[in-house]
Amino acid sequence: MAIPHLDLSSLRVLVAEDNPHMRSILRMLLTGYGIRRIFEAEDGASALEMIGSRDPDLLLVDWMMPILDGADLTRIVRRSPEPNCYVPIIAVTAHTQRQRVIAARDCGVTEVMCKPVSARGLYLRIANCVLNQRDFVRTKGYFGPDRRRFQSPTFLGAERRGVRRDDGYTLDGPGEVDQSHSETNTRDSMIS
């Protein structure tokens, strides 16, 4: 896959990561991409404060932080007032199990970056957040980036918005979403 060379110098990125070494690695990668405005939060609570004060264009969120973890932070951001609720979130996690990735996506993350982090892998996800910005979907049980990145005519997974309608759009409701079938959804939010 050809990677577009982007001038990312105007992008504002907030890194929420409790581990100082990982924070340094992420900052170094972002700096290497040419991003100049990088803000760092040591925990989820500080990240929330900085989202309000620093107005980031993108969040990198460690999924496992003490007290307020990545899932909690993502849910709070998605419930926050506009425009912060739309900020793209890249979850950075050492959990590699597919069901964990799907759970992160269902919290409202935009991309998932499984560790070990690579320069190419993180750049691809940032580029995807910026160039292929997805619409957001609001249902009774979800607010976040449209999880249907690809519209596959041969999709056989769970119909997560409820009963399929003729116009291609469907309804949703917490009771209608059978999470146990989520793993069959091939239209997940990861890029390979």
Binding site: E82, Y86, V137, T139
Partner: peptide, 8 residues
């Protein structure tokens, strides 16, 4: 019951 929103 659902809406699709363009990020501002």
């Amino acid at each position: 019951g659902y809406e699709v929103v363009k990020p501002p």
